[in-house]
Design a protein around this nucleic acid. Structure first.
Lengths: 134, 134
DNA sequence: ATATGTGCAAATCCTTTGCATAGAA
DNA sequence: TTCTATGCAAAGGATTTGCACATAT
């Protein structure tokens, strides 16, 4: 793992103290556009020889999501998925494997969306298009 | 709890053997348009004096969802939500409380949607508009 | 010094499973 | 009878928590 400085900078920019563990967790997810669970990230860190605890991985991912450095997805009712891409976009999901694929924003255009109820405002839009094999 | 006959009929129509427990579980959810977790349904059944086991509630809800009698939602990464409304519609979700509210289909119109990838077909669309207090 | 972060194991929450019993076809 | 459903408790997976230790400010 290299190029940790820009990752550390992104954490700092998000108001997160860039500790070595946090930078490693963030770097693993932000390495490329992808969707990973906490356990997958932990496994990859371990496989890469890094020593990070499970608690720290969870703490860090929650913190990153809260600060907007990564995006947390509710893709299934069982576990949280973390998306390295925080710009607006949508997802295909294979109903059989659970695999997630990005849909670029121009692929989805809304002709109409409801106004938020009184006293509320939009906090985000999550669109999943479930796919099955033909 | 009354009017169980039409519920039993809906189960039969869905190819589900309408046992007393299944009818009670289904009746509790289908009583009105609502979104409930398995545990909420179990608690309400118990509060109503019904004796149904947790395993049966889970088994039944999974079966109902599989057969299309109810709809299962991945509204958060922690637990499954069950929706009594199986006709196409979308949801608001309060990011703070997790509460779900229906959005009627005409409120959302898509000007454009991506075609499914080769060899795949649409299995459903799930749209959550997250809301926060202003 | 004082705040904050980390690691471990235990605890918690949600869901499924194994298996004996009960009920339906 | 024979197949299917139910209930209980135990097991399982994902996540959080408590607390002592380590690290940063």
């Amino acid at each position: 793992m290299h190029d940790l400085e820009p990752i550390a900078a992104r954490l700092s920019a998000g108001g997160i103290q860039p500790t070595p563990q946090r930078v490693k967790v963030a770097a693993m997810l932000l390495a490329e556009p992808q969707h990973l669970t906490a356990d997958q990230i932990l496994a990859r860190l371990r496989a890469a020889g890094e020593r990070v605890s499970k608690a720290t991985v969870y703490n860090t991912l929650n913190l990153l999501a809260e600060k907007g450095v990564v995006r947390q997805l509710a893709a299934d009712g069982q576990r949280a998925w973390f998306d390295s891409n925080v710009s607006p976009h949508f997802h295909f999901q294979d109903v059989e494997t659970g695999a997630l694929t990005d849909i670029a924003p121009p692929e989805v255009q809304f002709e109409r969306l409801p106004p938020p109820p009184p006293g509320m405002e939009y906090a985000g839009i999550e669109l999943f298009i479930r796919l099955r094999r033909v």
